[in-house]
Design a protein around this nucleic acid. Structure first.
Lengths: 134, 134
DNA sequence: CTGCATGCAAACCGTTTGCATCCCC
DNA sequence: GGGGATGCAAACGGTTTGCATGCAG
C-alpha cells in the first residue's frame, strides 16, 4: 500500500521546491516554502507551490503533515516518524521516539475501519518558547 | 496538570451547546454543532458557538480535537483516548486502543521540549465509505 | 502542435473579531 | 447600573480554482 503512484514530471518549479524542502530539517508550511522558493524563482505563484506540494505528497515524494494547528506542513523525509508541535509558536519538529507498530495491529482488531496508518503527535513547549517565558 | 481552569458561567447557549454535543458520539465540527443548536435556539450566532466551544475546551469541560483535515472537532468525552479519521469522508470516531503512557516518558527523554501530552490519530476508511466503493 | 504546467487573481471556507445591544447579577 | 455574553456582519488567513498564457515533448 501507498505505492509511489504514477511518476510525475519534474519541472523546474517542482525540482526547486523539492530542493528547498530538502535543505531544511524544519517542517515548513506552504507559504514558508513559497518564500524560500521565490528567492530562486521570483515569478513563481503561490498556487503552483500548493499544487505541486499536493502532487508530490500524493506521489510519495514528500510527506504532508496534517497535525493540529491551522496550516499543513511538509517534510522531505518520507520514512515513518513522529512529530512534536510547540503549543506556543506552532513549530513542528521530528521526535526520536520509536514507531509503535503494534498500534496499527491493535487498531485493526478494535475498529471496523480499514486501517491505513497512524501518526503520533506530541505537544509541548519548545526550548525557545520556554526561554521567552522569562 | 490540566486543571479545569476557572469555572465559566453556564448561560443558556453554553448549556444547550454542551447538551447537543453530549447527545452524539460523533465528533461534530463547529458548524455541525451550530446546525444542531440552531434547532433549539434559532437566533444563536455562529460566533457564539465558536467562542463558547473554545471557552469550554479551555476550561476542560469538553475536548477540542485538532487532527488532520481542515476543521476542528469537539468531543464531550474528556478522558484521554485516541481517534480514527476516515480519509475519504473525514468523519472522526473514537477508537478503543489503550493509551500508551510510555510514549510521553520516551518523548521527555529524547526532546528538549517541555512535553505536555500526546495524541494518536489513526487513518483509514470507515465502513460506510468501504461499501460505497462498490 | 498539443497538452500539461504555470502565473495571476478571484473565489472559497473555516474561523475570528469589532461592535452595538442585551441580559444577568 | 455594570460587565460579561450575545447576534450580526465584516474581516481574516490559509487554500483552492478558473482562466489565459507559456513551454516542453
Amino acid at each position: 500500500m501507498n505505492a509511489p503512484a504514477s511518476m510525475i514530471r519534474l519541472t523546474t518549479q517542482r525540482q526547486i521546491i523539492l530542493e528547498e524542502l530538502s535543505k531544511v530539517t524544519s517542517h515548513p508550511t506552504a507559504s514558508e516554502l513559497y518564500d524560500m522558493v521565490r528567492k530562486r524563482l521570483p515569478r513563481i505563484g503561490l498556487g503552483t507551490v500548493y499544487r505541486n506540494l499536493e502532487l508530490m505528497a500524493e506521489s510519495g515524494m514528500i510527506l504532508k503533515i496534517e497535525v493540529g494547528g491551522t496550516q499543513k506542513r511538509f517534510d522531505a523525509t518520507t520514512d515513518e516518524h513522529y512529530h512534536i508541535r510547540c503549543s506556543v509558536c506552532g513549530r513542528v519538529d521530528d521526535i526520536d521516539v520509536p514507531v509503535v507498530k503494534e498500534l496499527v495491529a491493535q487498531a485493526k482488531e478494535s475498529s471496523a475501519y480499514m486501517i491505513q496508518g497512524h501518526h503520533v503527535e506530541f505537544t509541548g513547549i519548545c526550548s525557545d518558547c520556554q526561554k521567552k517565558q522569562h
